[in-house]
């Protein structure tokens, strides 16, 4: 177990340490200006100096991202389920949903902010908008991907449609659901930050924007890395949930 961890985590850690060392060295050796590329040490310095405010803003963004993720995913799951059960709804709405999905989030964010106001609600709404599509589509596909012979088994056993849904179609859909959730959780941080770019007085997007205007590049880098870290942590949480809820799935099996 420990050996496996070392084996898996070893290479990326070595690469990270070497990269940071080279970065630090290059900044000093070539005299790279801080506003072009701050050295890791100055980014760390900016983080330590402003850690309280940075973490406060990160907390705001994390809340927006999580709330938007949950609302968007819940709506996506609901709509995806409706589409899986109704050919009419799926065929009627899907073209428009796919069209809406191609709207750049920066274009729709100002509209959503007009609708939902200048507070945190509009940031959640933008995030929810972005993390709606992947789950809607994957939920629909997942619910339709059940084994037809298993359905016959349920039919022979006189299962009700509700039983067939909860004991067969939903479990069959879970691997797809987690594909959608993993996409959503990554999009959710992007959605929250983009919304804060458009209009905000707090959050990591706000920090990035204000740091950029005052050319406080180490602070901007610190905020950027913090948002990346947030995305990674969220992703790992969803991946851990997948291991809990879909332990049977072949892709969970090491060595396959």
């Amino acid at each position: 177990m420990v050996l496996r961890l070392v084996e898996e985590a070893g290479p990326p850690i070595v690469v990270l340490v070497v990269l940071i060392a080279f970065w630090e060295w290059a900044c000093h050796a070539f005299g790279i200006k801080t506003y072009v590329l701050p050295a890791p040490s100055s980014i760390l310095g900016a983080f330590i100096k402003g850690s309280n405010t940075l973490l406060y803003h990160a907390g705001i963004t994390a809340f927006e991202a999580m709330a938007g993720f949950v609302i968007g995913s819940a709506l996506g799951a609901l709509i995806g389920t409706a589409f899986a059960y109704s050919r009419f709804l799926a065929r009627g709405f899907l073209p428009y949903i796919i069209a809406a999905n191609t709207i750049p989030v920066v274009a729709i964010a100002p509209i959503i902010i007009i609708w939902f106001g200048h507070g945190i609600g509009s940031k959640i709404a933008v995030t929810a908008f972005l993390s709606f599509f992947p789950l809607a589509l994957n939920m629909m596909k997942g619910l339709q991907s059940y084994d037809r012979v298993v359905m016959d088994v349920f039919h022979i056993a006189a299962a009700t449609p509700t039983q067939a849904f909860f004991k067969m179609r939903l479990p069959s859909a879970l691997p797809y659901v987690f594909v959608g959730l993993k996409l959503n959780v990554t999009f959710s941080v992007i959605g929250a930050i983009v919304a804060e770019f458009v209009q905000a007085d707090r959050g990591l997007g706000f920090v990035i924007m204000t740091s950029y205007r005052s050319m406080a590049m180490p602070r901007l880098w610190a905020a950027m890395l913090l948002s990346a870290l947030m995305g990674i942590v969220f992703f790992l949480i969803v991946a851990a949930l997948e291991r809990v809820f879909v332990p049977w799935h072949a892709s969970m099996d090491p060595g396959r």
């Binding site: 084994d147 298993v150 022979i156 006189a158 479990p171 069959s172 049977w248």
Partner: peptide
């Protein structure tokens, strides 16, 4: 008979839900 679960059916595929 089916609704009273008096029929058993075995298919070529065992069709055992994997979870």
């Amino acid at each position: 008979e089916r609704l009273d679960r008096r029929i058993g059916f075995v298919f070529q595929d065992p069709a055992l839900p994997e979870w």
